[in-house]
Nucleic acid binder design. Structure first.
Lengths: 146, 146
DNA sequence: TCTATCATTAGAATTGTTCTAAACTGCTTG
DNA sequence: CAAGCAGTTTAGAACAATTCTAATGATAGA
């Protein structure tokens, strides 16, 4: 049941507006929780965040959301193209705020991910998808021993 | 505890010998279970198999192994270079009997994987790994809407 | 303001995988 | 070729990430 009505500190109004509009134009109701989570996700440049991580950030920021809501929000955002999901290490998946075309370094020791701009990977040729199926995207993952 | 001593049908002796030798040269004791699992894995060309799948195949073939053993064997084989592990869809991981350099089509609807020979993907240029770290491998996954 | 519809919640349930400690076996040695 | 030890296997418990459930709450449009 609902226990606490959070009363979070307002960040800059500009930030509020953009996040709110991103949700609205994506066709997502800008609820308190989605707004708060979206702000955490999109506040600082591109990131690779797991559900658990975002949940913890929310707790630290006194944003009172349940873990289920974090999963719901991340999936809703992904379905609407605001995020992109990546699963590299089968133990958990990451949500990437960079939805443009790009690739990744994966640091095997730490499990850390780092973006590679699309231009830095030059793919000269790719095979056709079998049966002329449509390609939805091409992921290049460079696994690094570090 | 040990319940049944399985008594499996012998397949061709040649097949037996090669699998046994593959295990031995890999530095793995060719136990009954490992032999049986290796035969299932390597019998028919290249495959992408999950632990659960292999476990079920074993059951169907009256090979009495525990699920834990299947996981142990798959990981042991992978550690010794007999298999390669792939995680694409974070729900479970696959073990690929093709350990050579190659890439994959991933059929999003079915979750199915298909090999792409390394030559069919032409990467003209790749970035250096940060800090000069060693690249352990490059995975290209072509996601297909089918 | 009312209300249908959509979102959130706590906790239970599921799923894939790993752990544990005890039973067992392949292999080397004597 | 028996014995024993190191490496394997096992059932089931434990775990971690994620999804489900069904009840409560909030949003947006009339």
């Amino acid at each position: 049941m609902y226990v606490t009505i959070m009363r979070q500190k307002k960040t800059s109004p500009a930030n509020n507006v953009t996040v709110l509009e991103r949700l609205r134009t994506a066709g997502l109701r800008p609820t308190r929780q989605r707004l708060a989570l979206a702000k955490l996700m999109f506040a600082r440049g591109h990131r690779h965040v797991s559900a658990e991580q975002l949940f913890n950030e929310a707790k630290s920021s006194r944003v009172d959301v349940s873990l289920a809501t974090v999963y719901n929000a991340l999936h809703d955002f992904t379905a609407k193209g605001l995020l992109r999901e990546i699963s590299i290490d089968s133990s958990s998946s990451y949500f990437d705020t960079n939805t443009g075309s790009h690739h990744h370094f994966y640091f095997e020791r730490s499990g850390h991910l780092e973006d590679i701009a699309a231009e830095r990977v030059n793919i000269a040729s790719l095979p056709e998808a079998p049966g002329g199926a449509e390609i939805s995207r091409v992921d290049v993952i460079i696994r690094v021993k570090a």
